[in-house]
């Protein structure tokens, strides 16, 4: 029989180590890119650039948490940006035009995120439709509803109660320029990281993504786990929507056009396997930081935005290729 104790070549040992610790490769990559970008332009390591990095990463990092959960179950969510924008615009409209108090409007935004997740989750878990197709469909549906509600116009921050944009409130910290939104996203990471790592629900999410039939035979209701994952992801999108309003100082239907690609990129670069069952949110936050550090680092190095797009594209393919290689460990 196969045994792990067989004379292991260095490559095999590395493969095993990365397989056990999927967050290590994104960590190495982040450290390397920070080093290289700092060499190219020392301004990269300054508090200003670091603050900008964190501010710009927050929303995508939050969306990527929901995306991570869904990808861990072997699914994918193309509707992530559309769901967040629907939540964002609904709460902004309620707060600006219908006089709803900010806390209620924010709660409705989160609720709408949850309902979007519920719809995706029900279609995936009950009707057993492929997540790719389901969320491709709801991407259009959510976008269309947003346009019907808003007519495509932006709600300015000054037209909303202050609490609607409170996520942008600055929090100076160790010379860095942080804000409430970053803090909230940090809390989301803590909560989901805890749930994945330390609760039965987390074990079941991994089991369902890794070996759904085994999970079923072990007595787990696979469809319940899937449904819960999509709903939790939707709630996180709703929270991200509020962070987005604070970050932009306004609610715009075009707020995060590339959110689905950006979040999937963060997850994949973060070492979570598109096949499900392997990865986690530590990798995802590193992945989101890597993507954003490329944006800032390349700009500081004097390169145009297309180089960032090119670099991210190459990174994603490299990350998926690495995942394939690492997964070969499995017997």
């Amino acid at each position: 029989m196969t045994s792990t104790k067989k004379a292991a070549s260095p490559a095999l040992r590395a493969q095993h180590f990365l397989h056990e610790n999927p967050w290590v490769s994104p960590l190495v990559l982040l450290v390397l890119s920070v080093a290289v970008f700092t060499l190219l332009n020392p301004a990269f390591a300054q508090p200003r650039a670091i603050s900008l990095l964190l501010q710009q990463t927050a929303v995508v990092a939050a969306l990527a948490v929901g995306q991570t959960l869904i990808i861990l179950t072997g699914g994918i969510d193309l509707s992530v940006g559309a769901a967040a924008i629907l939540g964002c615009m609904s709460s902004a409209l309620l707060a600006s035009q219908h006089g709803l108090p900010a806390p209620a409007a924010i709660a409705v935004g989160i609720l709408i995120g949850a309902l979007c997740g519920l719809l995706n989750g029900a279609l995936v878990s009950r009707l057993k439709l492929p997540p790719f197709i389901v969320t491709l469909g709801t991407l259009s549906v959510f976008t269309a509803i947003t346009l019907m509600l808003t007519g495509g116009s932006t709600v300015q921050g000054r037209d909303m109660p202050e609490a609607m944009t409170a996520a942008g409130t600055r929090i100076p910290f160790l010379g860095l320029d942080l804000n409430v939104g970053i803090l909230v996203v940090g809390l989301v990471y803590l909560a989901v990281g805890f749930a994945l790592g330390f609760t039965a629900w987390g074990r079941r999410v991994y089991a369902v993504g890794d070996a759904p039939e085994a999970a079923r035979l072990a007595g787990i209701s696979v469809s319940r786990v899937l449904l819960s994952v999509y709903i939790v992801a939707g709630i996180i999108y709703g929270i991200a929507a509020w962070v987005l309003i604070g970050r932009a100082g306004a609610a715009s239907p075009n707020g995060i056009v590339d959110a689905n690609l950006a979040s999937i990129t963060a997850v994949v670069i973060g070492g979570t396997s598109l096949f499900g069952g392997r990865g986690g949110v530590v990798g995802t936050v590193l992945g989101a930081l890597i993507v954003q550090s490329f944006a800032i680092g390349l700009t500081l190095a004097g390169l145009d935005d297309e180089y960032r797009v090119l670099a991210v594209g190459i990174l994603v393919i490299a990350a998926v290729a690495a995942d394939q290689w690492i997964r070969k460990v499995r017997t």
Binding site: A207, A211, G219, I220
Partner: peptide, 17 residues
């Protein structure tokens, strides 16, 4: 098929569900 999740550890599999 043994009904185990390869990515999880022994104890998690023993107590899965």
């Amino acid at each position: 098929s043994l009904a185990m999740s390869p990515a999880l550890d022994i104890a998690s599999n023993m107590f899965l569900g």
